[in-house]
């Protein structure tokens, strides 16, 4: 029980991570894949931040007298990672928009079908 409750932050992280990862690999709709990817990445952010958090610790700002600080570094790192994640999601969405314009669909299986038809047409033409 101690194991389960004491590491509850890990359970949250693992649950979100698996959830996101499952969506990434199981969905064919591209937007859903991106959603899954975001959840997957977010789980890592929580993981990092919970690493640095000390129960009862304050923000690491200089005050008089001794104090318990949470580790600020993990938050700083994750700030960077969040920016990266936003950039990835944005780029992904931009690609999805253009894919929609090019193929008329954002479903990977349908796109594969279109590609196969194209290839067959090329072979036919020869």
């Amino acid at each position: 029980m101690e194991f389960l409750v004491g590491h509850y932050n890990y359970w949250v992280v693992v649950f979100l991570m698996m959830l996101g990862f499952y969506v990434v690999i199981s969905r064919t709709h591209m937007v859903k894949v991106l959603v899954g990817l975001s959840v997957f990445q977010t789980s890592v952010f929580i993981f990092y931040i919970s690493l640095g958090k000390i129960r009862g610790g304050t923000a690491p700002i200089l005050i008089d007298g001794p104090a318990v600080y949470s580790n600020p570094l993990t938050s700083v790192l994750i700030l960077t990672a969040i920016v990266v994640s936003i950039a990835t999601t944005a780029l992904g969405l931009a690609l999805v928009v253009r894919i929609n314009e090019a193929y008329g669909t954002v479903d990977e299986e349908e796109i594969d079908a279109i590609e196969r038809a194209d290839e067959a047409a090329v072979l036919e033409a020869r």
Binding site: V83, A87, A90, L93, A94, V97, E101
Partner: peptide, 19 residues
């Protein structure tokens, strides 16, 4: 940079024809 990036993402996606 962050301001520029955010707005340009918004412009890029919101400004497309057909949307």
């Amino acid at each position: 940079t962050v301001f520029g990036t955010m707005v340009s993402i918004f412009y890029a996606i919101a400004g497309r024809k057909g949307l």
